[in-house]
């Protein structure tokens, strides 16, 4: 997919550098997606071993962020990119920050999974948590697809789901509060689950940001902070 014509510069080395940057972001996105999926799985299935894996893998994502940042700095210094090339580098620098934070949220899921793994039975509210988690996973996957294909329409469609995620999070929060009131002995556990719900909601926000960067990259239009309050 080369709708940015990344391979058509007069300088072949410039082509390679931009391709390299883009491929590494895709790679980083793949790893982040895997971390979120595993973190959620570990949490929902009380799998402490998988939780450990997620926690131990987060440093890989951090290292990739640093690496890609360095590459982008080099491209800026050596190539002085303009127009779509410039927008690509700028959006990549922002995108990897959001990806790294998604990685941090996944790590949180992993940590809570470890701490809750001693539980034997699945609490009632886990169905809602699973639902929110599946929704966030789908949004993250669609976001990374939109980035890979530089597909503005897909990005806009995906960005529109952030409101749904926020509403699901609110509903789940209310549910958790009522469970806490019903059974104060569970407060500690429910608080942990509440942090996970929060982490999932944040992942949705970061995915939303990346969708906005895709629009900026392809159309040069910054659509951040343009949503109306009523939505």
């Amino acid at each position: 997919m080369d709708n940015l014509n990344l391979t058509q510069h007069t300088s072949h080395r410039f082509n390679e550098e931009l391709e390299d940057v883009r491929n590494r972001v895709l790679q980083m996105g793949g790893l982040v997606e895997q971390q979120v999926n595993n973190g959620l799985k570990a949490l929902l299935e009380f799998d402490s071993e998988l939780g450990e894996q997620v926690v131990n893998k987060d440093h890989q994502i951090n290292a990739m962020e640093v690496e890609i940042d360095e590459l982008c700095t080099q491209v800026l210094a050596r190539r002085q990119p303009a127009a779509s090339d410039l927008r690509l580098v700028v959006m990549v620098i922002k995108t990897i920050t959001d990806l790294e934070r998604i990685g941090d949220e996944a790590e949180k899921l992993g940590r809570v999974a470890i701490s809750l793994s001693s539980q034997s039975r699945r609490p009632a509210y886990y169905a809602e948590l699973r639902h929110l988690g599946e929704h966030v996973k789908a949004v993250l996957r669609d976001t990374l697809d939109a980035f890979a294909r530089m597909d503005v329409n897909a990005a806009l469609k995906t960005a529109k789901q952030d409101g749904d995620i926020d509403r699901e999070y609110d509903t789940l929060s209310r549910l958790l509060i009522s469970h806490m009131m019903e059974d104060p002995r569970e407060v500690r556990n429910i608080l942990e689950v509440s942090w996970c719900a929060r982490a999932l909601e944040r992942i949705g926000d970061h995915a939303n940001n990346i969708c906005e960067y895709v629009v900026y990259l392809v159309h040069g239009k910054d659509i951040r902070h343009t949503q109306s309050r009523s939505e």
Partner: peptide
Amino acid sequence: IFTNPTHQLTENYITGRFG
């Protein structure tokens, strides 16, 4: 012009896409 040119020819020139 340098962040978001309209015409493809302008884009190609300022991004070094033809010699």
